[in-house]
């Protein structure tokens, strides 16, 4: 599987203008900023879910030259609030999920046969990560992937994600609030300040 670099070239959406950024294979870049500063919207622009200025590149492939659904399949955005539309959990997964992965995330294998209504918000969040990664994307855009989790589970999810990202060599843009989390997972940390991204020193 090829390892590609994600590159943003003068992307502008909402308040943000002229965002330039490159994320290498296996690199995790954390994005932080006050609520409403446009973190999620920037991810939506990268996934091409909202009209925006500028170009996004995946290796040598331009966003605007790729059919939109094929782009999103490669540049996978996992939202903070995931949605589950079918009756059973496993109907949302085209392929079988490894029990090991479920266990690493602190989920029991039976969860796949549950009715969707039984899922807690924390379970939904972890399953959404599995669902996104199961599509085998080339890039991951994670919007607060541990927002609904307790501390122990948060660390479990971080460990699992880090391992996957390192093995698969995927570029990751990760929206995070928690300073501790950023220190644990990020290779680089960017903060949204008005219309710009400011590089923060890593501890």
């Amino acid at each position: 599987m090829s390892r590609k670099c994600l590159r943003l070239d003068r992307v502008a959406i909402g308040e943000l203008a002229e965002v330039g950024l490159a994320v290498g294979p296996g690199e995790i870049v954390c994005l932080s900023g006050a609520s409403g500063s446009g973190k999620s919207r920037l991810l939506r622009a990268v996934a091409d879910l909202e009209p925006h200025e500028g170009e996004v590149w995946l290796g040598g492939q331009a966003q605007s030259d790729t059919p939109a659904h094929r782009w999103r399949r490669q540049v996978m955005l996992v939202p903070a609030e995931s949605q589950w539309w079918a009756d059973r959990v496993d109907e949302h997964f085209p392929e079988r999920i490894d029990d090991d992965d479920l266990e690493s995330l602190g989920l029991e294998p039976e969860v796949m046969s549950w009715q969707v209504g039984r899922l807690s918000s924390g379970e939904k969040q972890r399953l959404a990560l599995l669902r996104g990664l199961g599509r085998q994307p080339a890039v991951l855009l994670l919007d607060e992937p541990t927002a609904n989790l307790d501390e122990a589970t948060t660390q479990r999810v971080e460990t699992w994600l880090l391992t996957k990202v390192r093995i698969l060599g995927r570029p990751v843009l990760w929206v995070a609030h928690d300073k501790g989390q950023i220190a644990r997972v990020a290779d680089r940390h960017l903060r949204i300040d008005g219309s710009r991204l400011v590089e923060e020193a890593m501890a």
Partner: peptide
């Protein structure tokens, strides 16, 4: 009303016809 569902399906790489199929 189901904008979140449609968008989540788009995020997973579904074509629009599938995302709004139901």
């Amino acid at each position: 009303r189901q904008r979140a569902v449609i968008e989540n399906r788009l995020m997973l790489g579904e074509p629009w016809q599938l995302a709004i199929g139901d």
